[in-house]
């Protein structure tokens, strides 16, 4: 069942008299519960796709539909995580993670009177990412990897149908990054939200996604859509199997053409 549907979507940025075509004629759809990844050379409009799907930016032409409804403004209740963890330094990890509950209906109405229940729910989520002991700490007392885990928890606590990840592991060291792929996959296998991952890292894309879209350099067009038919759960060992490596090479070759 199609959940997100883009038809001929373009976006033009206007800066003074100059106009830049950031995204050209994107047409693709994401099924409900599918996890897709968008890869491409830097500056190709990957993040633009995220902003268009969530309605943070209006499309210059074309149509974006989410859950059958045309997107005209920011759609509600989406989970988002960026490369920068954007945790609030004045809130503890627990309070940071509970933020969506203070904003998203129906939790918003119930939040004050059912705080304990929500805290238990957040605690469970923190346990799955291995942060249970850090709930009362402040973000700046956590390492970069821990901050990014909290960031994921915040994006998922309200069980959004749509999760947007914009290079969430980009600033982490290689070991932490690979560990968090596993965490992310486990969360997805449990909750089965629809996921959109924007990344530079082809191994990350193949590890996590059901379908990988390759974009051309600016103006961004989708030049390849590749189904990843590796069974789940995938592990780090999977990433060394020939089929995985072949897929990564195929994507790499397609992107190299863009740089040629």
């Amino acid at each position: 069942m199609t959940f997100v549907d883009l038809k001929g979507v373009s976006l033009t940025y206007r800066l003074g008299k100059e106009t830049t075509l950031a995204l050209a004629d994107a047409t693709f759809s994401i099924n409900k519960g599918e996890f897709i990844a968008v890869v491409g050379p830097s500056g190709c409009g990957k993040s633009t796709i995220m902003k268009l799907v969530t309605g943070l930016l209006p499309a210059s032409s074309g149509e974006v539909r989410v859950a059958g409804e045309k997107v005209t403004g920011p759609i509600k209740g989406v989970g988002m995580a960026f490369q920068n963890p954007t945790l609030m330094p004045w809130r503890t990890t627990m309070d940071n993670i509970l933020l969506p509950m203070e904003v998203v209906e129906p939790h918003k109405r119930r939040f004050r009177s059912n705080r304990a229940e929500y805290e238990a729910q957040a605690m469970k989520l923190l346990q799955t990412v291995g942060l249970a002991d850090f709930a009362r700490r402040y973000p700046w007392q956590l390492s970069g990897g821990m901050q990014q885990r909290s960031n994921l928890c915040r994006a998922l606590i309200h069980e959004p149908e749509l999760l947007m990840l914009d290079e969430p592991f980009g600033a982490l060291d290689a070991f932490t990054r690979e560990e968090l792929w596993g965490v992310m996959q486990a969360l997805w296998l449990e909750k089965r939200f629809t996921g959109v991952l924007v990344t530079h890292d082809l191994r990350e894309a193949v590890y996590l996604a059901d379908t990988v879209y390759v974009m051309s350099k600016r103006p961004g067009r989708i030049v390849l859509s590749r189904k990843i038919d590796i069974p789940r759960p995938r592990s780090l060992a999977t990433t060394f199997e020939p089929h995985f490596v072949d897929l990564v090479h195929e994507l790499r070759d397609r992107i190299s053409q863009e740089h040629a």
Partner: peptide, 21 residues
């Protein structure tokens, strides 16, 4: 940070909520 604002907007926060939170 613009990202912080984006996180809140995509959750459906109103302008007042972004201001107070």
């Amino acid at each position: 940070e613009p990202e912080m604002r984006d996180v809140l907007r995509s959750l459906g926060a109103t302008r007042t909520e972004i201001l107070t939170k």
